[in-house]
Design a protein around this nucleic acid. Structure first.
Lengths: 220, 220
DNA sequence: GTCATCATGTAAGCCGTTACATGATTGC
DNA sequence: GCAATCATGTAACGGCTTACATGATGAC
């Protein structure tokens, strides 16, 4: 799961470990507080596997902002006004995703495995990199899981009398699940709408392989 | 955390491992799918530590429903109509909580440690066993955490432009946190109301040690 | 007689954590 | 020169999962 998050962030920008952690914590919210003790070994593992590679710093004082890195540049300015060059750093190992890494990433994204709230959230956050049918499948798989869980909880609720506190927890949880389901419903509907529109443009074929989409969904 | 859940269930009813798992999954919903591979070792650990003890089955064919076990009896009837006596079982080791276990339990319940959603939910579900001030402290600690997290997320949200999917995840998460906070607000208010009422009855003292409450909150 | 369910347990491994060690740079 | 921040890494451990092994009992 950490691997997926790292590769996902690296799609589109080159980053070093410390910065990956910040983005994980600040901008995604998911996976808050990944510790360095798991992050650095993960990066080393990914590098050994050939999914990422360290980019040569070329000797110059400031290599951090690469081709696609418009994001990095922006928050660098927004954060406490600091001169964007030469800040407190040590060796700073900047990583770039490889083609192999991109393949690994899409496999991880689409790859089965029961997804709990966290890994589903992560997958959905990177859903832009998924072909539309896989996106729909992801949403519907999660929806089915939640529906089943809700029915189980509802079924069990009537059997045993709980005290105020336990009941409050159970009910709050059930409401949360219901809320998640209707959120998913909205997403699924939006997804279907987009697919219909794109399908009409691209031709009548049903599921084929709609070429990865990506930016097309951005401006919706 | 598993220990706390087990001890909490064992407060008030004697149970065997298999049954503990069911109650964890069905009635609490929290800690869904605790596997036997972690449950049985946990029980063994607790027994070794003297927090629980195996109750002697006395040789009779059906020991399962003990003094306090009114609940077990009920669902036994409700579940697929089965004759309540002598069902498919092996040796069936039934556990009972000890006095030491009760102490351990309250320590675990009140005991600090950053509580995430799961352990907070578990603590609150068993909050009946907590003295009212500790209950309030638990709620307010959690509330403070959520408020802080929400402000962090809100702060970071404006810095980086996210695509539709990532944005949807972040916003949905933020809404969820806000919802949790207002839930906590309702609980805190209810708690304060109960404390005022009880305080008025018991005397003017502010925090003393209100004798564990327990059943008093049940009928609210 | 064999399948499903109830029931307990062990072993290996994954994924993450905390704690520790190190080092460069900036600001006071 | 000292603390704070940025930066990378190692070591030990914890908790939970999967997979495996075993065995009793009732239903078909």
């Amino acid at each position: 799961m950490l691997d997926m998050a790292i590769l996902g962030l690296l799609e589109g920008q080159e980053l070093h470990g410390y910065e990956i952690r910040r983005q994980l914590r600040d901008t995604l919210g998911l996976l808050a507080n990944v510790s360095f003790g798991s992050l650095y070994p993960a990066l080393a593992r990914l590098e050994a596997a050939g999914d990422v590679e360290a980019v040569e710093a070329a000797g110059g004082p400031v290599p951090p902002v690469p081709p696609t890195g418009s994001l990095s540049g922006e928050w660098a300015v927004l954060r406490s006004r600091r001169p964007p060059r030469s800040r407190g750093r040590r060796s700073r190992k900047v990583y770039r995703i490889t083609d192999r890494g991109r393949r690994t990433f899409t496999e991880l994204l689409a790859g089965g495995g029961a997804d709990d709230a966290r890994s589903f959230g992560l997958r959905l956050a990177f859903a832009r990199h998924l072909p539309p049918p896989a996106r729909l499948a992801l949403l519907e798989r999660r929806r089915a899981q939640l529906v089943q869980r809700l029915s189980e909880v509802d079924g069990a609720r009537s059997e045993v009398p709980l005290d105020v506190y336990a009941r409050s927890v159970v009910e709050h949880t059930a409401e949360g699940v219901a809320r998640d389901i209707s959120w998913l419903d909205r997403l699924i509907e939006a997804e279907r709408g987009a697919e219909r529109a794109a399908g009409g443009r691209a031709g009548g074929r049903a599921v084929g392989r709609p070429a990865m989409a990506g930016e097309r969904t951005e401006g919706r």
